[in-house]
Design a protein around this nucleic acid. Structure first.
Length: 418
RNA sequence: GUGGGCGUAGCUCAGCUGGUAGAGCACUCGGUUGUGGUCCGAGAUGUCGCGGGUUCGAGCCCCGUCGCUCACCCCA
């Protein structure tokens, strides 16, 4: 009988690494929740056309990385490759944009792209994202960036960098794109590169070959084409970031992979990761809602890669907080004691403490070993003496020291040590 | 999609010019009749990724395939 394996290129999190994943994801979510964003829980599959129209047919994500299939009713369905299009669809469908603006939502879940797997790149990957929809207010841009920044800081990350730019409005982009294409046509390029430039001329700014880099050094720069309104918007965003002491650099050659971005665009990258160093990114999108059949409102959001943020935390040696470990591990010495241990554990669990027990009628030594492995802060042995007297020895697993406590005061002791 | 490296015990890996499998760690028990992490002893564990070929004989050679991994590309 052949053993089953996970499909190619998916990321899985199981103990104990899953605790780490959970911590990172929760920290990202908390940053959004504390800023007034509310959960939006959406399907992982959507009408294929939502993505071809929303993300853009010319993007690699849509043209060659989507998991698309026909459902039983003959509809073309696609596993979501990103989060923004689905959020916009739901906002439009349920008229969330008819109330007070901006609509502020966060989401967390799995996304799918049929790429060749690599360090930090998976076919099923996890993102936490937020969207603030309905107002073109530069201070919202600042808030969105600050939420990502604060999450990374809370995790304790240091070796990352924020880059920002402005892509201008739709007209500006078209004017610029024309000039950039004209410039590129003067270069002597191979066929594949010309084809890439035709899809999106900005891509050439990302090329890793030295000869292309130097050739592009004299290319026209988008920031020089900005309208007075766009320039003023971008200026306010930068001032806002400075006011919050958020470090950033303006990267006037930044390339974003999705077609819908306009005005402010940003990216967080981490130094200790491999080729896939982007841990999060996002930007403003002016035309997206209208493109998807809604009213013409602007929005801004980001997607943070949970998998890559986990890798970044591991690279920097970020430690799990105490609350992710057990408060107490009970080692019962007999079947009778085990029944009492379970009753005690359930009582403490009901008080919000995390407690586990040595099952399986193990020896004292085996039970203590299990207590050690569990990572619990304290352990306690439950035998005939303890049950008779109600007096316990609460052992601090870090120092090895024991303290005499009564069963009644056990909960209070554990809480005070948190 | 293109290219490089690699698949041997739960994990990390060794295995000479082909002779039929090993170490460390981890695990279980014991040394210590009621206290883990150190030390000592004992024990359990493999269709050597899968399929085919060459050979008297394949973990080792050849072909295919699946997977992992890194890079290109792309992006979270």
């Amino acid at each position: 009988m052949a053993k089953f394996q996970a499909p190619k290129g998916v990321s899985e999190y199981f103990p104990d690494r899953s605790l780490y994943f959970e911590y990172v994801r929760n920290t990202l979510i908390d940053s959004a929740r504390t800023s007034g964003y509310k959960l939006i829980e959406l399907p992982v599959f959507e009408d294929t056309e939502l993505f071809t129209r929303g993300v853009g047919e010319s993007t690699d994500v849509v043209s060659k990385e989507m998991y698309t299939f026909e459902d039983r009713g003959g509809r073309s369905i696609t596993l979501r490759p990103e989060g923004t299009a689905g959020v916009m669809r739901s906002v439009i469908e349920h008229n969330l944009d008819r109330g007070q603006l901006p609509v502020k939502v966060w989401y967390s879940g799995a996304f799918f792209r049929a790429e060749r797997p690599q360090a930090g790149r998976y076919r099923q990957f996890y993102q936490v994202g937020i969207e603030a929809i309905g107002l073109n207010d530069p201070e919202i841009d600042v808030e969105v960036i600050a939420i990502a920044e604060r999450a990374f800081k809370t995790l304790g990350l240091k070796n990352y960098q924020l880059e920002i730019t402005s892509l201008g409005d739709v007209d500006t982009r078209q004017r610029y794109s024309k000039d950039l294409r004209a410039f590129i046509s003067t270069l002597d390029l191979d066929e594949a590169t010309v084809a890439r430039a035709e899809l999106n001329p900005l891509r050439l700014f990302d090329d890793k070959r030295e000869e292309i880099k130097s050739a592009m050094a004299s290319a026209p720069i988008l920031l020089d084409y900005l309208s007075p309104e766009s320039a003023a918007h971008f200026e306010r965003v930068q001032n806002g970031l400075r006011a919050l002491n958020i470090d950033f650099i303006v990267n006037n050659r930044m390339v974003r992979g999705l077609d819908y971005y306009t005005e402010t665009a940003f990216e967080f990258s981490h130094r200790d990761l491999g080729a896939q160093s982007g841990i999060g990114g996002g930007g403003r999108y002016d035309g997206l809602m209208e493109q998807l059949g809604g009213q013409s409102l602007s929005g801004i959001g980001f997607g943070i890669g949970v998998d890559r943020t986990v890798l970044a935390c591991e690279a920097e040696g970020v430690a799990l907080p105490n609350s992710y470990f057990l408060d107490l591990f009970i080692v019962p010495l007999s079947p009778e004691a085990k029944a009492s241990a379970l009753a005690l554990a359930e009582q403490l669990r009901g008080e919000g403490l995390s407690v586990d027990i040595a099952y399986g009628d193990r020896s004292l030594k085996g039970g203590m070993k299990a207590a050690d492995k569990s990572g619990a802060r304290f352990s306690v042995v439950l035998g005939d003496d303890e049950l008779a007297s109600s007096n316990l020895t609460l052992k601090d697993m870090r120092t090895g020291e024991g303290e005499a406590v009564t069963i009644a005061s056990l909960g209070a002791h554990l809480r005070s040590a948190r």
